[in-house]
């Protein structure tokens, strides 16, 4: 098999594909979750708290949550039916266990027991593991105040981005 144009182009294509695949792998390690597009999700789910990435919980969690919006962690977060259904669709389409989930989301899905439909992201095993080095007094800082306040430290949480190098813990 001598070096000719055909073999060379197969080699180049193979290297390019491998590069693209490795590149994809790095993106998976970046702790980035896909977010629903359009203004509705952030408008309705990002006023009182961070617009959480749907990939932080499995679809069954979101289904339960969206059926109990009139008592949403003690508050009335009810929506009209068209918006509720549209948002439920966005959540399940981007949930941790959706068929197109990235490696990170699969890890989230795998860490949640099959029979469980957790409602608080902060109580999931992966969240606790990722935050176990954050001492209690840091959570109490005025600009953080709550574990639900992702955006206080994860500067681009509203874009579904949680990589460690983007973390800025406020004083």
């Amino acid at each position: 098999m001598g070096v000719n144009i055909k073999n060379l182009s197969i080699l180049i294509a193979a290297v390019a594909l491998a590069g693209a695949w490795v590149g994809q792998g790095q993106a998976d390690n970046e702790v980035v979750f896909p977010m629903p597009t359009g203004p509705l999700y952030v408008k309705e789910c990002g006023s009182c708290h961070t617009a959480y990435a749907p990939g932080l919980l499995p679809a069954r969690s979101w289904q339960k949550m969206m059926n109990e919006l009139d008592n949403h962690f003690g508050e009335d977060a009810s929506l009209d039916e068209p918006d509720r259904l549209a948002i439920l669709r966005m959540l399940t389409d981007h949930a941790a266990d959706n068929p197109n989930a990235n490696m990170l989301m699969r890890r989230v899905a795998a860490s949640i027991p099959r029979g469980a439909a957790p409602q608080r992201i902060t109580e999931t095993q992966l969240f606790r593991f990722q935050h176990d080095e954050v001492p209690a007094h840091i959570w109490k800082r005025a600009k953080i105040g709550s574990k639900a306040n992702c955006g206080a430290c994860h500067t681009r949480a509203n874009e579904g981005r949680y990589p460690e190098r983007e973390v800025r813990i406020p004083r």
């Binding site: 009182c48 708290h49 961070t50 508050e75 953080i144 105040g145 709550s146 639900a148 306040n149 955006g151």
Partner: peptide, 10 residues
């Protein structure tokens, strides 16, 4: 403002 529970900026 600031949400009393989540502390998110309003």
């Amino acid at each position: 403002g600031r949400h009393i529970k989540t502390h998110k900026a309003i």
